[in-house]
Write a protein that binds this DNA or RNA. Structure first.
Length: 563
RNA sequence: GUGCCUGUAGCUCAGCAGGAUAGAGCAACGGCCUUCUAAGCCGUGGGUCAGGGGUUCGAAUCCCUUCAGGCACGCCA
């Protein structure tokens, strides 16, 4: 058993089913084809700990008023052997369950038993999932979009790991195709400009404008001089790409490591060019998805269910990005056997979603196995204004600049505070503020306070006792019970985050744990209390520490012992 | 023009597999430290859930429509 909620849901479901069966036997209800019994937490505390709307759902079948059905069910409920203490009917026909505090004390025992595993669930049942994220173009530095996608993708992967999936994190290195051509042309132009003067060659219109391209040219010249001037353009570009590309990839890799992101695999687009793109094209051809026209090869839009045809092989014989991407996804699903693939893309790529899903069907993979998480772009705010440039370099703010200014913890937390679909305003002043306004500090402070209580007690030679010895029934204050209720919900939060692919639930959750703890801290003392109560509260404090630490570890954010 | 995303308190956002009187934080105002860290807590005020229509016993949530903002519609990626 991983979650008290699971147990309670089972109990309530059983109790309801039995009650309805009994009511049918008594002739109080007609035979009913029972729908899934929904159990939820009422918003108002007065409505009990859990409730169900089952009476309202079977109105049509039972041919009675919902309240009447609810009354009948309640009359026939046998709550023996469950946590249920009281049942009532309320509102339009809700059945509310009031639980004995025993479920909360059992929650604490469960946390104590599961420790760092508390919160883990097994909805994935070991199925293989790939999360592909960031996959930044290796033609330049990481930007804010990559920063958000990185925090989001990494945490989605972590949430899935905690949910029983076999997760692989992957970075797709776009080291081939048209993009590399442009990279080479841009490097060459900067190289020639450095040696022959700005005016010697016009910088190509669609080249990469970034300052880092100039830096690469300068660095190359410093190391290897001007020998490339004597070479052909093709040789020159190749030499410059061979020089700059590994540097860029390493820089991206190191930046992401600093950010706390570790990939299982760096997959190179160029590796698809040996045979896999051809193989994929053959499959599409055999399945009748290709049309030839205007000297190019297209994906048949009509057959694939798309608005228009899409070029896969250009007139010049080179595959498009999409052709490579289809081959890449064929590799993910059919060569490496992932059951599910999750891709994180900036919202500006949303037009590609339908195309890729259609392409999956075209190669015989159900489109439902491909999930695309789109995230909106980021605005950095400072002093109430949008910040575009780094003060130090005068260039667009890179991930490294952001980490220099606000640190890893704040960046990872802030990027996971909003759902992926919402636009994100990143308040850089708030991110470095050391106050309760800053959610990162608020949560970390709760953890540090807990550690301090433990440390202070240890200085008095007071250590916690085991779950067998402690008398948890002494925990009856509202602040204590609220805190435990919050801790009980953690496995459910993981489940929901995994199902919705929204780790932002967890930042909100851990903020609420911290808030409930701070309230407890102000209302109840641990040190100096009579021994039984002290031990019960200390047990609660340890459990709270475990949960906060587990969430922060999942988010890969530091949980400091002192602040 | 077509398609996708967003619209909830002054601000930033939760809630959106339909459920009870729509929530949190910030900002504003008023309290709480001789006791484990006040980087904290407690309290007060604040709403046409963008507008309109529909489905339903019940809609912020689902459907249609209008409006506003963003994005995409390349032999770019």
């Amino acid at each position: 058993m991983y979650s008290i909620y699971q147990k309670i849901n089972q109990q309530i479901e059983m109790v309801i089913k039995n009650a309805i069966d009994k009511a049918v036997e008594n002739g109080q209800l007609v035979e009913i084809d029972l729908p899934q019994i929904m159990i939820e937490k009422p918003r108002e505390e007065a409505f009990g700990d859990f409730s169900t709307n089952i009476a309202m759902q079977i109105v049509k079948q039972a041919k009675k008023a919902p309240r009447q059905i609810a009354e009948v069910i309640v009359q026939n409920i046998n709550k023996e052997g469950t946590f249920i203490n009281k049942v009532s009917v309320a509102g339009p026909g809700f059945i509310n369950f009031y639980l004995d505090n025993e479920w909360l004390y059992e929650t604490l025992s469960l946390i104590d038993e599961r420790k760092e595993k508390y919160g883990e669930v097994n909805i994935g049942k070991g199925s293989k999932v790939m999360v592909e994220f960031v996959s930044a173009n290796p033609t330049g530095p990481l930007h804010m979009g990559n920063a958000r996608g990185g925090a989001l993708g990494d945490c989605i992967a972590s949430v899935l790991e905690k949910s029983g999936y076999d997760v692989t994190r992957e970075f797709y290195v776009n080291d081939a195709g048209n993009q590399m051509e442009k990279f080479g042309i841009s490097l060459e132009a900067r190289y020639l400009q450095q040696l022959n003067g700005e005016e010697s060659i016009e910088f190509p219109e669609d080249g990469y404008q970034g300052e880092d391209i100039i830096d690469h040219a300068k660095d190359y010249i410093n190391e290897y001089g001007s020998a490339l001037l004597q070479k052909t353009s093709e040789e020159r570009r190749k030499a410059l790409i061979d020089y700059a590309l590994p540097k860029n990839i390493k820089r991206i890799h190191d930046g992401l490591v600093r950010y706390g992101i570790y990939y299982d695999c760096w997959f190179k687009e160029s590796s698809l060019y040996a045979s896999e793109i051809d193989e994929t094209m053959n499959i599409l051809k055999e399945r009748g998805y290709l049309v030839e026209k205007e000297g190019a090869i297209w994906l048949d839009g009509e057959k694939a269910g798309l608005e228009k045809d899409e070029v896969l092989i250009r007139q010049n014989g080179f595959p498009t990005y999409m052709a490579a991407d289809i081959a890449y996804h064929r590799n993910k699903f059919l060569k490496r056997g992932f059951d599910t693939v999750i891709n994180l893309w900036g919202a500006d790529h949303h037009g590609h979603v339908a195309r890729m899903k259609a392409a999956m069907e075209a190669i015989g993979v159900s489109k439902d196995r491909l999930h695309i998480v789109l995230f909106q772009l980021v605005n950095l705010y400072q002093n109430g204004e949008i910040r575009k440039m780094s003060k130090r370099s005068g260039r667009a703010i890179s991930l490294d600049d952001l980490l220099d200014e606000v640190g890893v913890d704040a960046a990872r937390f802030f990027f996971n505070m909003k759902t992926s679909g919402s636009h994100l305003d990143f308040d850089m002043d708030l991110a470095v503020e050391q106050s309760n306004n800053n959610p990162v500090f608020y949560v970390q402070y709760a953890h540090a306070r807990i550690c301090n209580i433990i440390k202070k007690l240890q200085e008095e030679n007071i250590e916690r006792i085991s779950s067998d010895e402690v008398n948890l029934t002494l925990l009856v204050q509202p602040e204590e019970l609220n805190l435990i209720k919050r801790l009980a919900a953690y496995p459910e939060e993981i489940t929901m985050s995994a199902q919705t692919l929204e780790p932002s639930r967890l930042t909100h959750y851990v903020m609420n744990v911290a808030a409930d703890f701070h309230s407890f801290y102000n209302a109840c003392r641990v040190r100096g209390e009579q021994e039984d109560l002290l031990q019960a509260r200390l047990f609660l404090v340890y459990c709270t520490k475990t949960v906060i630490k587990n969430v922060l570890d999942l988010l890969r954010i530091d949980a400091p012992e002192r602040m």
